[in-house]
Amino acid sequence: MDTFIAPTNLELAIETKNLEVIYGDNQAVFDSSLEFPRHKITAIIGASGSGKSTYLRSLNRMHDKSVTVNGQIIYRSVDINQPKINEYEVRKQIGMVFQRPNPFAKSIRNNITFALKKNGITDSRVLEERIETSLKEAALWDEVKDDLDKSALELSGGQQQRLCIARSLSLRPDILLMDEPASALDPISTEKVEATMRKLRKDYTIIIVTHNMQQASRVSDYTAFFHQGRVIEFNRTQDVFQTPHVKMTEDYISGNFG
């Protein structure tokens, strides 16, 4: 299959080498090598079933033991795809936001402090400071600062998703993985989430899976196109969308399939 992977020549946050993901007899991701530049937003696009979400979930070791992940995931010059690596620590460095908002059935405050407390942070000054910074980073602070003890389930869908972003950020991760974070949201909430992402790029590396090509072209610096479990093209977003090197990318972007 014809592919085109552009070198980034930038400082990398994380990269994969020959990554493959296998569910039982079914291989979902083949031989994928990708670089994710630091403090940039990289979008992963592709049709349903192209393996993009599966690939994303292997980056912070979210696959359970029934799934085989081969190849290397290099993070801070360590291959984190090894059995001896503590996957809990990996997930604290590489946070994740899911397709549907999944706040805990707890107060807004406890949604953010729960993981912190379980990780041994109990100083209430630190906790309060984390709540405020995380919520501000996720652009939710002004809307909820007076109701921190309200149940998170009473927030709107868009607010819940930004709370989930804040919850991930509270652990001060390095990288934020987002698995179609706006697909369950209305256009206004989607715009807020995208604005939040643009702001976060300053301090975080973001990798976002999306089936929405407009979204990819709006928010991302780099874009990877997946098809049938393989990386077909990776380049700067404007190059992928304006001058794709591979015919299949061009077909997908112009809506000929997918």
Binding site: M62, Y88, N102, A115
Partner: peptide, 26 residues
Amino acid sequence: PNLQREAGIALGLSSWKTTTGIILPA
């Protein structure tokens, strides 16, 4: 919902902490 478990796991919590702190109260 399974999403609650994933949320806990993705925050670097063990299955046990996710179960006792999130799933059980719900």
